[in-house]
């Protein structure tokens, strides 16, 4: 029973650890890593779904009668491309965040933003008083 669904256990484990990394880590690169793990789990899920017991690769030949479903493979090829694009975009955003904030820690970025807001509000109050 446990081994029958081996792939699904792997999928669930990867999916949950990926999500956990995204939520729990403050480092922006680690978050992207988590996101990639999360997405990869879905790829494995689709691929395992396509497997037919005793089936071979889906090649058109006379001696092949039973073959795995090729459609999920094709779908997941698309999803992998999307995943790469997302990771690339995410990482390039991190590069620019590092340039702008000098940090890639969520806490520090949030702190800097709040500080800026406070300063702005303070300046504005002054302005209003003068007016």
């Amino acid at each position: 029973m446990l081994m029958d669904l081996f792939n699904h256990w792997v999928v669930i484990t990867l999916m949950m650890s990926g999500l956990y990394i995204v939520i729990a880590h403050g480092n922006l690169i680690k978050k992207i890593v988590g996101l990639s793990v999360f997405q990869t789990s879905v790829f494995i899920f689709y691929i395992s779904m396509a497997k037919v017991d005793g089936g071979t690769a889906p090649i058109l030949a006379d001696d092949i009668v039973q073959y795995s479903n090729p459609l999920p493979h094709v779908l997941i090829l698309t999803a992998i491309v999307v995943g790469i694009a997302t990771t690339a975009l995410g990482l390039s955003l991190v590069v620019r965040i590092k340039e702008a904030y000098g940090s890639i820690e969520e806490e520090s970025i949030q702190q800097q933003d709040n500080q800026q807001q406070d300063n702005n509000a303070h300046a504005k109050r002054k302005q209003e008083e003068e007016a």
């Binding site: 978050k31 996101l35 997405q39 997302t86 995410g90 955003l93 965040i97």
Partner: peptide, 20 residues
């Protein structure tokens, strides 16, 4: 502003989780 980068990053994380 640089906040745009941070907002975009957060949207990317949430949006990708949603799409996945």
């Amino acid at each position: 502003n640089r906040q745009a980068l941070w907002a975009s990053y957060q949207y990317l994380i949430m949006g990708t989780i949603g799409a996945t």
